Amino acid sequence: MSMTSLGISTGFMIGYCVLAQTARRLAKRFVDREGIVPTLINEAIAAAELCACCFELIIVADNFGVAAYAVFLFMLTVWWGKVWGDASACPYTHMVDLVEGKTSLKEVALRTWAELMGGCCVYRIVQVFWWFEFAETHKGRAFEDCNADLQVHPYLGAAIEGFATLLCRLASKALSEKEPKFSSIIDSFIGTSLVVAAFNYSGGYFNPVLATALKWGCRGHTNVEHIIVYWIGACVGALLSVPIYRVPLVRRFLVGEQKEKEE
């Protein structure tokens, strides 16, 4: 494939990141900062940005390989860590907050709904862009049937998504606590590495909203299997990170000391 096609994919992702950042600034300027509404808007914008870029990353992976995919994903993850603020575009982060007593069930449900709306609705924008076929890699992609990335048994896929999500969460917690130099870059590198490791097995989504926006209803798994792998698997892994991180042996390994603060 030509470098022109890669350049067009790059341009789309950069363009959408600029669009999303503009939307965030406009929302901050015109939306009342009180209440849950600005939070939901930011979650929807972040989820739309995440899914739009990852739709295009599918094109990159299919035509230029997993290495190119990993480089783009790493750079995007670093960027998102700097601009998203309190948004996560991922439901299990709010579930973890609920378990830790930092939020309410109502807010978890509303944030998840906003993320699903942003992530799923953005496909129409991506589809129109693909329909124009500016790049040869976009030919026929706008309306073709999608195929699932799950290449293993659904229960194994759920275990892979769950275990990798657990590792991601533990790494993020440890980095947040220790705050080493370039912690956001280290966190992005760990996340990207785990995605690449799981890429040929479950797809390496580690985010229920992202998986649903990109792969719901695709050939290769049923809707129930999709929920088991990408929702139950990932969410269980994230929730398990809460008690596991409190285990003294785990804490000594990750942060070099026992947790002294009483829960």
Rank of each mutant, 00 (worst) to 15 (best):
K173R: 06
V108W: 11
R169Y: 12
A89Y: 09
I160Q: 00
V152T: 08
A142S: 11
T103W: 00
V122P: 04
I125L: 13
A114G: 03
D97Q: 10
A114H: 04
K139L: 05
V152Y: 00
F132P: 07
S172W: 03
H153R: 09
D97R: 11
D86M: 12
W113F: 12
W130H: 14
C146D: 00
G157Q: 02
A87I: 01
V99W: 05
C146P: 03
C146G: 11
N147G: 06
G140T: 10
E177P: 06
K181I: 15
A114K: 08
A114M: 05
I185E: 11
L167C: 09
K181N: 15
F163C: 09
E133F: 03
D97W: 10
W130P: 12
I125F: 01
Y123T: 04
E136P: 00
G85R: 12
L105R: 03
R111H: 02
S183D: 13
T103F: 01
C168E: 05
V152L: 01
T112A: 08
L105N: 02
I186Y: 08
D97E: 09
C90Q: 12
E133S: 08
I125G: 11
A114W: 02
H138M: 06
L167Q: 07
S188T: 03
S104C: 04
M95R: 08
G191I: 15
S176P: 07
W131K: 10
A164Q: 09
F134S: 07
V195A: 04
K178D: 00
V195W: 15
A109C: 09
M95H: 06
K106C: 01
L166F: 04
T112L: 05
G119T: 07
F129A: 03
F189G: 00
S183M: 14
R169C: 14
L194V: 05
Y155R: 09
A142M: 10
D86I: 09
M95D: 00
E177W: 13
I190S: 11
E107D: 04
R124P: 03
E100V: 06
A171N: 14
F132A: 15
A159D: 04
